[in-house]
Every structure is written in C-alpha cells, then in structure tokens.
C-alpha cells in the first residue's frame, strides 16, 4: 500500500487521532493517542507493521518542542510509514512501545539518553551510550558542555598548540 491508502485505513480505524504535516508522507500523532495508534499499526490486518526500522529523537528548536520519528515497515505487506510525535521540551513524555516492538527498547533508551524524552511504561529506562552519571542531554540544541566530568577536563585544551 502507498501512503495515501495507509492514511485512508487509519482515518477509518481511528478518526481524529492522526494528522498530517503539510504534504509530507508522514503522520503526526499526539502523545496521548499514541498507545491506541501504535497497537493498531501492529495488529490491524491491513497494516501489520511488524518491524520498527528506526526510532530517532530530534530537536528542531523552533517552538520549544522535541520530536520523535518512528519508521515502520511491514515485511508482509512491503510498505513503510513514518510517524512523528512531538512533545513539549518542558516535560517531554511519550508512551513507550517497547512492549510491542522489542527493537524500540534500546532505541527509546538512546532517545532518552540524548534528548531526555521520558518513555512512559518502558521496562528499564536508563542511559545507554553515555555513563549513568552524565548530566544533561547532549543532542538538545541548548545543551551546554560541562567543563569537567569526574575531574577530567572535557573542553579541548588549545594552550599547548600556541
């Protein structure tokens, strides 16, 4: 199925829960309805998105929102779908899908690690790539690099070059 047909199916199954962003082939979902929509994506016989290809957080600065982009693929039906969820930077929270697609487990931990997005209901939400005692979320655009980490100077010391 192409994007227009997937959109039609979703419009019938869960009206008012999904939205599009201009003419881009992706659907926008609000965090509070993501639980229902994600279940539908996996279980609906017309959609059967059994594979989560990628889950990436992003920070576009513009309006104090963080976002998460999900890329799904159906190995059976051979179609894909991009889902975008936006959440306020103040208190970023999105329901976890780690129990539906196990691939989301580590990817959600990574998005938490880098952007501080809380995935509600995740089995073990903790940092994955950075050390557990790291402060701040480095991929946020307003992240300010600390001077030291456990006594180690982080900033590049250029005095030696002069």
């Amino acid at each position: 199925m192409d994007f227009a047909n997937i959109k039609k199916v979703l419009d019938v199954r869960c009206p008012d829960l999904i939205d599009t962003d201009g003419d881009r082939p992706s659907i926008m979902v609000k965090p509070e309805s993501w639980g229902i929509v994600s279940n539908l994506l996996k279980t609906d016989p017309d959609l059967t998105f059994d594979s989560l290809m990628c889950l990436s957080g992003f920070d576009l600065v513009e309006d104090d929102h963080l976002g998460v982009a999900y890329h799904f693929y159906s190995m059976d039906k051979r179609h894909d779908l991009e889902v975008i969820i936006r959440t306020p930077k103040e208190n970023p929270s999105i329901p976890s899908i780690a129990n539906i697609w196990r691939a989301a487990d580590w990817h959600e931990r990574e998005a938490y690690d880098m952007y501080g997005i809380i995935f509600e209901g995740h089995p073990d939400l903790k940092r994955i790539l950075l050390p557990d005692d790291w402060e701040g979320f480095p991929l946020r655009k307003d992240y300010v690099q600390a001077d030291t980490y456990q006594g180690i100077i982080i900033k590049k010391d250029k005095t030696y070059w002069k």
Binding site: M53, C54, S56, D59, L60, A69, H71, A103, W106, L139
Partner: peptide, 24 residues
Amino acid sequence: YIISDGKNIPVRLKMRSPAFCNLS
C-alpha cells in the same frame, strides 16, 4: 535519518546501526 533545513550542515543525522539491533 537526515533532517535538513536547507543549510550546509544537517539539523539531525541519526544512524540506525545494524549491530545495535542485532546485539539487543
């Protein structure tokens, strides 16, 4: 996954690495 805002550097570049998922 690359997001571009029309400038010469990416806004966001995410690499979905295969071994990351394979190890999980």
